[in-house]
Design a protein around this nucleic acid. Structure first.
Lengths: 179, 179, 179, 179
DNA sequence: GATGAATGAGACTTCATTCAT
DNA sequence: TATGAATGAAGTCTCATTCAT
């Protein structure tokens, strides 16, 4: 059944976020999805395959904010990223990094899904700013994406959840380099 | 014996970096340290305690570069971070993030050890720049640390290892906002 | 359908020979036969019943060689047995012997099918020889069958595949006792 | 403990004979030996390794009979083989043959242990007979071993347990070819 | 008659942890 | 202090078998 498919993937993604790769046991996924373990194996050849598939269910940033101003767009994007992360936690990123030595496909899948969607969002924001003449011609979107998204990763890793003023402060600090 | 203590901690840190929390089995730590498993338990009450202790053995950034120029200092710091990360891998950061829901002490320990040492390094670099009149008075070191260190985390997570020109490009992009 | 019946039995016999009783999974039989698993169960109440039925599909020795000479007949028969065994392997005999403690029907079926057909072949060869006056009157075909067929079983079990001269050497060693 | 070692190997050999490779579960071996499953894995890296080790515990034919007469020696040897087989069953031979496609080491080990010990026994019997002038100079012990041992394998496989007169009849049938 | 989908039971294996010495 | 030996608990995966369609 289609609903079984969804239930399994959602249970897997949830457990992956909350209990890590190790904690995402097939038994727990099956129980959370309300099916038996072999039913999971009917769909995925191994736990590893299931985890890889679950990664792709993480949130995308498909519709970048469009406020008409570069700074505000970036603040909105960063705020959105922070809000998303506070909902589902950063541990999913931790999982894909932590498992890289043994399961590099997880990180690969994360890059293909989430990483590229973030980059695309920044790309679009900067494109629009450029067409409004708000930004330097040689500004590289990849660098901006690294700086904006990374700031949150570093802040969380080194200090914890940022306060509400933080996103604006980051983008303000960055602004002179963009325009 | 002191050398036994060291051997155990080093083996644990190494395995934690290279194989993650799950891969850091007590048997593997004991074997790598050349002792028996009960010897490990004489020192740490549990595997988890051992992992927490091992986290503190991660590299510090005790002597921030001092080139006489803010930009060059930051490039050197970032280059140093990248080099360190390429040696020991990012999976250790992944581990502390991934384990946070169940073992928040790992992340707490990481913040106390590595996070604060990075922040102190950036602090010092900016202090020196400020005393040379190279930077704004209201520049907050915490934001700069987020941006510089985070850029690498984001780049690695989204794209992989950066090329050799990358660190300079990041700092150049950032520079107008610092001075 | 008749062809379905055949396909299932052939797949079962093939898998039984090549992968043993354990390797003959119902899923593998169904896949090899191009049907679903329940289709197999429509025909056989259990995997075991299927195995028993598959045993009966093993090769018979219906037309014993007739060269006009006892020795040559036996050599031809033994050569034929060796050739057959090298094609389908001895593991099928292993299966019926190995399963005897728990599933004696397999061995019973093998005796009824293959064992009796070999005995009949030796019987006929010796009958013809006797009518030509080539053999002792009191020669018991059962003993000859044991010696000829068994020689191959023992050779394979103890040493492996015999070389090309072996069948003739065996029968030559045996000859003085037959005539 | 040494007694644990023995208990595990004996339990494994017993189960291998009586329930086949599949039936020799590690749980059953552990239970029969009175230990936990991990204790078994402390000694053997896998179930397969355990089975291979258990094969070597099968009976040898170290002291061939020495009656002073070739025929009687062979009858005694064959009678001994039959008696041994009736005690432990032929299913262990079935197991090594049945598992050959997936676990060829079992058959290899059987050949190295049991096969070679039988061959050595026949060798010695014939050597002694030759030194007494009771046999042909060119008689090949390997062929005799094949014929004598094989006769029992074939008889059992095709008909079942032989009656008490059978061993003598086999050797008598063979005798003219030996002397 | 045929099958897609499901599952209870059980197999092999690993691991953190303990205990007697 | 140190360890050889042991184990409860749990994890991944497979398989014979069933049921609704």
């Amino acid at each position: 059944m289609a609903s079984t498919d969804t239930a399994i993937l959602e249970a897997a993604a949830e457990l992956l976020s909350q209990r890590g790769y190790r904690g995402m046991t097939v038994a727990a996924v099956a129980a959370a999805a309300g099916v038996s373990q072999p039913t999971v194996y009917l769909r995925y050849a191994s736990k590893h395959d299931l985890a890889v598939a679950a990664i792709a269910r993480r949130p995308f940033f498909a519709n970048p904010p469009d406020t008409g101003d570069l700074t505000e767009d970036l603040i909105a994007l960063l705020t959105d990223i922070v809000a998303t992360a506070e909902t589902i936690g950063l541990s999913i990123i931790g999982v894909v990094l932590a498992e890289e030595p043994e399961h590099p496909e997880l990180l690969a899948r994360w890059r293909a899904a989430v990483g590229s969607s973030v980059l695309r969002a920044v790309d679009e924001i900067i494109d629009r700013a450029r067409s409004r003449g708000q930004t330097r011609d040689d500004l590289q979107p990849g660098l901006v994406a690294d700086l904006v998204v990374g700031a949150y990763l570093a802040h969380y890793t080194h200090e914890g959840r940022p306060d509400s003023a933080w996103a604006r402060q980051i983008v303000e600090t960055l602004r002179p380099g963009l325009t």
